[in-house]
């Protein structure tokens, strides 16, 4: 069943209905839910990648098992193209799956998720091509691949080795699906705006105006002096929250620093050398939060280690 934009209930023949953006998300939710993942909701602070959500960034730290899947809206102000570039938006969605410890059959399970989406690996050229990942601003790095589907990168696969400057033990696996790319592929459309979000509305209907306005904001209308001030204030707040050992509120302000920095960077007001310094400031905060989280969980005796939670993913 679906609803058209007049609010009238439509009867939809599921056999004939093609794939759309929201059905891709629903399929992935169902798939990973069936394999024991917690289905979480997006985190409500601006961020450049799903990795920065506490569901990943914090849970990667320490010995406790964790399996989660969620959609994460990402903001990368510098990628704005006023909606004119068909393939690049400054606001888009990632589908993030994060499992600790990394299970032995994860590649097969991942390929099954593609089957669930209607992509039969048997019909395509699917490749795991080396791609290592590093986010210096949060002291995190890992090794893995970008997954190619007939030459198109559709997923980023990463075995976390370090997070917040701490060694990850056990190691987690992170899979980040590019939802727009996948859907464009499935719908055979050649532009993000043309993606059918549901049966009546396109991605462009939902987000195109936002792209234009946010690009204008990112590149022309933002006030650098205000943003510089905000960065300093966010940093102060994060620092005092770290002192009070409030992990999650502190992380929120680290994320705000990070986004603030991205806005300044997009505005072109940060020189190469200042860049390194700003990243250093954010990294220092992120490391402290990571360490704080570890200490906190340790003092709680790592409660999730005792739960019989479904951390072993079955294919």
């Amino acid at each position: 069943m679906g609803v058209n934009y007049h609010g009238r209930i439509l009867k939809v023949n599921h056999e004939e209905r093609g794939v759309n953006f929201q059905s891709v998300i629903a399929t992935l939710h169902q798939f990973w839910s069936d394999r024991g993942c917690l289905i979480a909701q997006p985190y409500d602070v601006e961020k450049g990648a799903g990795t920065k959500s506490p569901h990943t960034f914090l849970r990667a730290i320490g010995p406790e098992p964790w399996s989660v899947a969620y959609v994460e809206p990402c903001r990368r102000p510098g990628d704005g193209r006023y909606g004119q570039n068909p393939n690049r938006y400054q606001y888009y969605y990632q589908y993030q799956v994060f499992i600790k410890p990394s299970p032995p059959n994860i590649q097969d399970t991942y390929l099954d998720s593609l089957r669930a989406l209607g992509i039969r690996p048997e019909d395509h050229d699917i490749r795991f091509v080396e791609d290592n990942w590093e986010d210096a601003a949060v002291g995190a790095w890992g090794v893995g691949w970008e997954v190619w589907l007939d030459g198109m990168e559709i997923t980023q696969f990463t075995y976390f080795q370090q997070c917040g400057g701490l060694d990850c033990s056990p190691v987690s696996i992170e899979m980040t699906y590019g939802l727009e790319r996948l859907t464009m592929y499935l719908q055979e459309v050649d532009g993000i705006a043309k993606i059918k979000w549901n049966d009546c509305l396109s991605y462009g209907d939902v987000h195109l105006q936002g792209e234009i306005e946010q690009s204008t904001y990112n590149f022309e209308a933002s006030s650098p002096s205000l943003l510089f001030n905000l960065f300093n204030l966010y940093e102060q707040e994060a620092t005092q929250l770290i002192q009070r050992q409030l992990v999650l509120p502190a992380l929120d302000y680290v994320l705000k620093c990070s986004h603030g920095f991205n806005l300044l960077d997009a505005r072109g007001v940060i020189s190469v050398s200042e860049r390194t310094r700003y990243i250093g400031r954010i990294r220092s905060l992120a490391r402290q939060v990571a360490q704080l989280y570890f200490t906190q969980r340790e003092s709680l005796e790592f409660p999730l280690c005792k739960l019989p939670i479904a951390s072993q993913i079955t294919g």
Binding site: V143, Y159, C168, P170, V171
Partner: peptide, 8 residues
């Protein structure tokens, strides 16, 4: 860039 995996 060798890696660790799982819990080992």
């Amino acid at each position: 860039r060798l890696m660790r995996w799982g819990d080992g």
